[in-house]
C-alpha cells in the first residue's frame, strides 16, 4: 500500500490510499547507486528501461533534504521581520497623526513584535507542512512531483517534453549545503517544475538521470 508501485490501471485506488497517508517515503536518505547495469525486463519498452535506470530507483518516492525546512524558515523569518518593521512604522506614524491607535513608541513596538511573531510562527508551520507534503518520484515515463500546503499540486512531466535541466544554488542554499533542480519544458509553466532542497550530489545525480531519460525518450518517441 505504498505509492511506489504505481500502475496506470488502478491509479484511482492508489490516490485514495495516498490521501490517507500523506507521505510514505521509503527512507530519508536513500543510497543512490550509479545506474547502468543495462538489465531490462520483458515488459513493453519504457523510457526508463531504455535508459538503463535501475528498478529500485524507479517509482520510489523521495523526500527533500530536511535542512530545506531551515532554508524556508530563515527566508520566511526575514520576511516576517520586514513585515513587522513596516507595521511598527505605520503604527508609529498613525499614532502620531491620528487618535485611532494610541501614540507612543511602546505601542508601535508591541504591534511590530506581535505581527512579527505571528508571521514567523506561520512561516515555521508552513515550512514544516510544506516539507512534509513534498515528494518526487522518478517514474518509468515521467517525473512526478507532489507538494503544497493549502493547494496541493501534483505535476507530471513526461520525459519526452524535457528541454533542459538546470541545477542552481543561491547563497543561502550554498550555506546550508542545498541545491535546486529546475526542469524546463516548452510549456508555459515550464519554470514551475522546480525541486528545491536537494543535496548537491543528489541534484547532480538526478540531473544526469533525467537528462539520460530525456534523451532516451527523445530517441524512442521523437516526432
Amino acid at each position: 500500500m505504498t505509492v511506489s508501485d504505481r500502475n496506470d490501471d488502478n491509479v484511482a485506488d492508489d490516490e485514495q490510499s495516498t490521501a490517507g497517508t500523506p507521505s510514505t517515503p521509503t527512507d530519508g536518505d536513500p543510497e543512490e547507486t550509479a545506474p547502468g547495469d543495462g538489465e531490462t525486463t520483458d515488459e513493453p519498452p519504457s523510457v526508463a528501461a531504455a535508459a538503463g535506470i535501475d528498478d529500485d530507483v524507479l517509482d520510489s518516492p523521495r523526500e527533500l533534504a530536511s535542512t530545506v525546512r531551515l532554508q524556508w524558515i530563515l527566508r520566511s523569518t526575514v520576511g516576517a521581520a520586514v513585515f513587522g518593521a513596516i507595521v511598527a512604522g505605520i503604527t508609529l506614524v498613525a499614532g502620531g497623526a491620528t487618535d485611532v491607535v494610541p501614540a507612543g513608541r511602546s505601542t508601535a513596538v508591541t504591534a511590530g513584535v506581535g505581527v512579527f511573531l505571528l508571521a514567523a510562527v506561520y512561516g515555521v508551520l508552513k515550512a514544516v507542512l510544506l516539507y512534509r507534503s513534498w515528494e518526487y518520484v522518478v517514474r518509468e515515463d515521467s517525473l512526478y512531483l507532489r507538494r503544497g500546503v493549502f493547494t496541493r499540486v501534483r505535476t507530471v512531466v513526461p520525459y519526452v517534453r524535457v528541454q533542459h535541466i538546470d541545477t542552481t544554488r543561491s547563497p543561502l542554499e550554498r550555506l546550508l549545503g542545498l541545491s535546486t533542480l529546475v526542469v524546463y519544458t516548452a510549456g508555459s509553466r515550464g519554470a514551475d517544475v522546480t525541486i528545491p532542497g536537494l543535496t548537491p550530489e543528489r541534484a547532480s545525480t538526478l540531473q544526469t538521470r533525467l537528462e539520460r531519460l530525456a534523451i532516451e525518450s527523445e530517441e524512442a518517441d521523437a516526432v
Binding site: 503544497g148 493549502f150 493547494t151 496541493r152 499540486v153 501534483r154 505535476t155 507530471v156 512531466v157 513526461p158 517534453r161 519544458t185 516548452a186 510549456g187 508555459s188 509553466r189 515550464g190 517544475v193
Partner: peptide, 30 residues
C-alpha cells in the same frame, strides 16, 4: 501535451474535488 498537473485547494479538498491543468506550448497559456 507538455505537462499535466492536478491541484486541489483547501476548499476543493473539503468536497473531494480537484482541477487538472493540461499545459501546451501555445502562446495563449502565458
Amino acid at each position: 501535451v507538455q505537462t499535466v498537473a492536478s491541484s486541489a485547494t483547501v476548499f476543493q479538498r473539503r468536497r473531494r474535488l480537484g482541477t487538472v491543468t493540461i499545459d501546451t506550448a501555445g502562446a495563449r497559456s502565458l
